[in-house]
Design a protein around this nucleic acid. Structure first.
Lengths: 351, 351
DNA sequence: CTGAAAGCGCTTACAG
DNA sequence: CTGAAAGCGCTTACAG
């Protein structure tokens, strides 16, 4: 079936040139006569030559491999980022070696050493969420390091995240565009950067439209329970409101449940926008929740683009923007429309 | 920060031995005096030596790297398999380079060539489902190839899948254990191997308990819609039934919805078992659906164990079983129990 | 434009 | 038990 692999010498011999010349042709380096080039290329084609990437790497010092350090690959959000990094990596003809720390700091460190041993040209650290902080390894590593979907302990590092402010603006614009004017933001801990960012964007969009929030932002946690509780607070405050931007989908669902339970119809009385697009990501077709999609694959993609720019000197790394634009997907929670009879039944069932 | 990397010669020099001896110590090969060994190890430790894995690989011909070819990494089921392979890979000190074909046959082929160029010691092909068939590459590749969560076009290949028959028995045993005796299997296309396997296991468990199916197996597709439709057929048949094993969770949910809509209570009147444990995998706590978990991470793990056994001559590859046992997770759809007050609220959500 | 030579960092028979 | 030497397959100055 498979015979002994053909090496560069075989090509050189077949083409009647030296090893050095053959190598230069394969790497598009040096000045080579066009005739020679064609001859070598033809030989490589004919013999189905596959350069040994490992030998090439040890000789050249560049492995064309990127190390990926996932804080927690099993996490719900890691996968899309991973898909994005890999897609872009292969667009640049780069390979990746992936290690999953599964939250273990010890593992993390041994993986890092493995990556060094394997001479990776760069590293992308995939965090476990935009509010998570990964221990910076940039100082210990010779090449560039990108942090995707998670911060780094060193503020100087290149961190790639969804654009929370833009997300907040997007949510506000959507609600305002629907004619809602008495808007509220309900989110998680105010100290979190994502929470602050989304709140800032939301507030700025309101201001830009000359609108006052119907209630000051309500802070809880990223959970359904917090949504229940926040809805109660909002109702008890007596404030009038017709639109809510929730910090994430869990909160949004909690809010929706409690508001409906209190007799307020969603979206007729109150329109709700979530964040994460969890249902959409899971492949649901008819969405209940309008939600902001953080474009996680694009985040991974962006991190790799930056890494590549760092590796290629002819590329300008500073042109790569670290914030990735979010998108909005619409569901019945803002634009309304009847659920199909069937999804009605389903939703009662699965809630 | 980081100085020039320390090489094996540095260790040899520091320990006052030859390069060959140092190498042997690092690889636990040859007979080395204990004193010498200690001296070398100490030097390596002191200088924080990290062997260059690439050089080691080109010299030895073994890269200690496994190639992973994913048919479709974005698929809902690929992730758990991937996590399993990687976990086990790192247990054996192996690295992996991952390529995602995203269903493209062309990509698939160029990725395969990349893997060859990178001198991987083995390959695991991650399919897009137990009924999917991947083009076999075993004949074109020099090392071992494992197919995880997907079949291969060559029946001689090593294929790792969840044990569908056992899953079927598990579902039946669970329902019977709950006192249900009029059982039915509702699944997808009868031609599919997974469907046939689950059906076989289910039927055999019934037989073992001296039970007749309450209705012949109903075949449709792996979708909610098929669940609706099958429920109708079942009801219209006039057959009495108190337990259903559904081919997957989508069907199960469809069944449950239609049965509830027709006035039958789940699980009081009809208990339902699904397959995939989608909600559980998504991290839901209080499950509506009792479901069979295909243990996808274990499938990936098993494939790697086999691969490793093939690579190490001293291991017995034939001891690795290609079928992975499924587990059953219980939800309200069979064991009942009230949803918590909170999920009750949620259920009112869209009522 | 092309080739002979040294080198990347390691491993592996083979003598001794 | 240890070392000198050749080798893995490739790249990269350096002459010419």
């Amino acid at each position: 079936m498979e015979s002994k692999p053909v090496r560069l010498v075989d090509i050189a011999r077949a083409a009647g040139v030296s090893l050095a010349t053959a190598s230069q042709v394969m790497n598009n380096s040096g000045r080579i006569a066009d005739a020679t080039r064609q001859r070598v290329l033809a030989a490589a084609e004919r013999l189905d030559y596959r350069p040994n990437a490992l030998a090439r790497a040890t000789a050249s010092g560049r492995s064309r491999t990127i190390g990926i350090l996932a804080e927690n690959a099993s996490g719900a959000f890691c996968m899309p980022v991973l898909v994005g990094t890999n897609r872009t990596l292969s667009r640049f003809n780069l390979a990746s070696v992936l290690y999953d720390a599964a939250h273990s700091v010890d593992l993390r460190h041994s993986h890092f050493r493995e990556l060094q041993a394997r001479q990776v040209d760069g590293i992308v650290v995939i965090g476990d969420g935009a509010d998570g902080v990964s221990q910076s390894i940039s100082q210990e590593f010779a090449g560039p390091v990108a942090y995707a979907f998670g911060k780094s302990s060193d503020p100087a590092d290149a961190v790639f995240l969804p654009d929370d402010e833009q997300a907040g603006r997007l949510a506000a614009e959507h609600l305002i565009g629907l004619g809602r004017t008495r808007l509220v933001h309900v989110s998680a801990e105010a100290e979190l950067a994502t929470v602050a960012g989304r709140a800032r964007g939301f507030a700025s969009a309101l201001a830009a439209h000359g609108l006052q929030p119907a209630h000051e932002p309500i802070h809880g946690t990223f959970s359904r329970e917090s949504g229940f509780y926040s809805a109660r607070r909002l109702i008890d405050s007596g404030a009038g409101f017709d639109g809510i931007f929730a910090g994430n989908d869990a909160i949004a669902v909690g809010l929706a449940a409690e508001l409906q339970a209190s007799g307020r119809r969603v979206p007729d009385d109150v329109a709700i926008v979530g964040f994460d697009n969890t249902a959409g990501q899971a492949g649901e077709r008819e969405l209940f929740l309008t939600s902001i999609d953080p474009q996680l694959a694009a985040v991974g993609s962006r991190a790799v683009e930056w890494l590549v720019a760092q590796l290629d000197d002819d590329q300008d790394a500073s042109s790569v923007v670290p914030s990735v634009e979010c998108t909005l997907v619409t569901g019945r929670s803002t634009v309304g429309g009847l659920p199909t009879p069937r999804s009605l039944v389903l939703e009662q069932l699965l809630a």
